[in-house]
Design a binder for these strands. Structure first.
Lengths: 156, 156
DNA sequence: TATATATGTTAGCATCGGCTAACTTTTGAG
DNA sequence: CTCAAAAGTTAGCCGATGCTAACATATATA
């Protein structure tokens, strides 16, 4: 097949690689979206257990801004995924795996918020943006954020 | 109703406000997700028109890492939304509104990438993370990013 | 110009994560 | 202890965004 055709694709190897890398990037974002629900829930459940001693659907629904049936449905998905344990009508607990994920999410969240604050962004915006950004930050970028925060603290 | 009950919610006004703010944050993230598809498509269409002279479904599919029928379906959604114009089996064009959105997205994308690079992150990771992050960056945060990039450039 | 191949569309399906309405269970106040 | 209200669940709906299989159209080359 001849190269550089007008319609029949395959312009060059370079743009093929570009396209592939781009496609992988979008795939990564789509995967991140799939785990966002789980991450948001376990993070919130850990938070609620810490401040209230237990996590109940009604509180989760209120804080996520969704209705109780949505929470019920998603909690059962998390149970299937092995992240939470629970019996009908009872409070929700994290499995060891869920705790591990929650801990990682909370660390990441803290770092992203601290990083945004260190740029001079106001607290409310920092929290809001962090909520969306945190799910899309690679470990590499997270470490860079952490370094900035540390440096900002050193300069007190 | 008495306050600070074990089961009957309403712990305090402060935590009520917290919960509300948190819920709004999650709502913002969900809204961002709804516009992500449109933003990714118009951004990519503008890019393809620039580098190839036209945007065809096959290229969009390849670069997004999805199958052609998905592109057909989403393009028709964008057409309904008034962002693209097109006739069956022909290349895709952006309406003035679509061009405006594409331009805003590309500017935001450029800033986020430049910002991550200025933190010392490698190009591939910067591109990958930017793809996910860009949809969740408020104008406030974007300006802070821009300022960091500008300062980094000034330092030669 | 005829036709094989590349491109594009349609139809039909699945999953995810929202919702409302209606029902069940738990809880706490009287 | 009873029973009303709060909390939780179930059933059934919707829209978004993916997919495959089958079909339609356009294009380029023999």
């Amino acid at each position: 097949m001849t190269k550089l055709q007008i319609h029949g694709r395959e312009a060059s190897d370079a743009s093929d690689r570009d396209a592939k890398a781009q496609a992988e990037g979008f795939a990564t974002v789509r995967q991140a979206h799939e785990s966002e629900m789980a991450e948001d829930y376990v993070e919130l459940i850990a938070e609620l257990i810490e401040i209230q001693g237990e996590a109940r659907p009604v509180d989760i629904a209120e804080r996520l801004g969704v209705k109780p049936p949505t929470v019920t449905k998603n909690i059962s998905r998390l149970k299937e995924a092995g992240l939470v344990s629970r019996e009908r009508y009872r409070a929700i607990f994290l499995t060891p795996e869920g705790q591990k994920l929650a801990e990682a999410c909370r660390r990441r969240h803290r770092i992203v918020v601290a990083f945004l604050l260190s740029l001079g962004i106001d607290e409310e915006t920092a929290e809001r943006d962090a909520e969306g950004i945190e799910h899309h930050v690679s470990e590499t970028t997270l470490e860079a954020f952490e370094a900035v925060v540390t440096r900002a603290h050193e300069k007190h």
